[in-house]
Design a protein around this nucleic acid. Structure first.
Ligand SMILES: [Zn+2]
Ligand SMILES: [Zn+2]
Ligand SMILES: [Zn+2]
Ligand SMILES: [Zn+2]
Lengths: 159, 159
DNA sequence: ATATCGAATGTTATAACATATCAATACGCC
DNA sequence: GGCGTATTGATATGTTATAACATTCGATAT
């Protein structure tokens, strides 16, 4: 369990490492990390918070990289499919993956106040859900595990 | 773990029981199950499927119970807060609770083809998430556990 | 009975999130 | 160069959700 997102850390190298790994992953897999996609990933990575598609779009537009919703959604679609980003269903928003591509079944701790997000890998949950699914004859393709609440700093702020 | 929603069952009494329990729960808690709210619950209960707010609204409107979005969203808000319904975040849709108010931490199996939903209570998952949250100093207020895939009949249909 | 207050509803408008469609361009390959 | 595919540009539309304010309803207190 990493709590990156709530804890202070060397964020500059956090970003640099991830971009590096994204580059080489794309090279390996024959994926094209085009300028818009690359910039979209940088924008998501800039903060360990969920950002809406239109937030992303606003930044891209300000930089002259396309001003229509499809630009943002296409980039997000690519990043999600490549495993570089996740959609936070409870917020209809997006966040860069904290483990670049190594996620099996991500779980998120989501602050409702500041939208910061910590990502974990919760294999045990999958087992439990798998039991339930098997009993029901249900074929799981994707799982969503999200916990909403308050992060440490927002708890302090509320006190 | 109940797999109501996928398995055949006496749905008429499933509905009647739930409405009964909703009535008495409201009486106990001083909540008002007004005509619109009652009808909204009946509509959700009619199927063990997720229904969009605008689907619900269409039915209410056809019956002369209000034709504007806030009508549906207010009713849904009441039902969710009372524990009579859940929002399925992965679909932006709503479903009646299968355990009327007895849910601690619901988990859902969601068919992407027919939107039928089975509800389970997964206390063990909570423990795992709680461990993660405690380690991060995060205060969980609500959890979302959803598995998307294919229900038994839609698997058969696809075969 | 009637004034008052809070809850619920009616109504209009708009915000926020997401996709369909088709044309134009860039890229990799032969 | 010529071809097929992936990507981008652009317009329009579809879908989900809330803000804001007026009105009505229901219980309570005088
Ligand atoms: Zn970081
Ligand atoms: Zn926070
Ligand atoms: Zn039933
Ligand atoms: Zn199905």
């Amino acid at each position: 369990m990493s709590t990156i997102g709530f804890a202070p850390h060397d964020h500059a190298s956090c970003v640099a490492d991830t971009m590096q790994r994204a580059e080489s992953h794309c090279a390996d897999q024959g994926l094209r990390l085009t300028p818009v996609r690359r910039r979209a990933l940088e924008i998501l990575l800039a903060e360990h918070r969920a950002q809406g598609a239109y937030d992303l779009l606003a930044v891209l537009a300000a930089e002259g990289m396309g001003a229509q919703p499809p630009v943002a959604y296409r980039a997000l679609d690519f990043l999600v499919k490549a495993g570089f980003a996740h959609k936070i269903e409870a917020l209809n928003a997006y966040i860069a993956c904290a483990h670049l591509g190594e996620c099996q079944m991500p779980a998120f701790l989501i602050c409702r106040a500041c939208r910061s997000v910590a990502e974990a890998d919760t294999a045990p949950t999958r087992n439990r859900l798998n039991d339930a699914a098997r009993a029901a004859g249900f074929a799981i393709e994707r799982t969503v595990v999200e916990a909403e609440g308050l992060c440490p700093s927002c708890q302090d702020a509320a006190a």
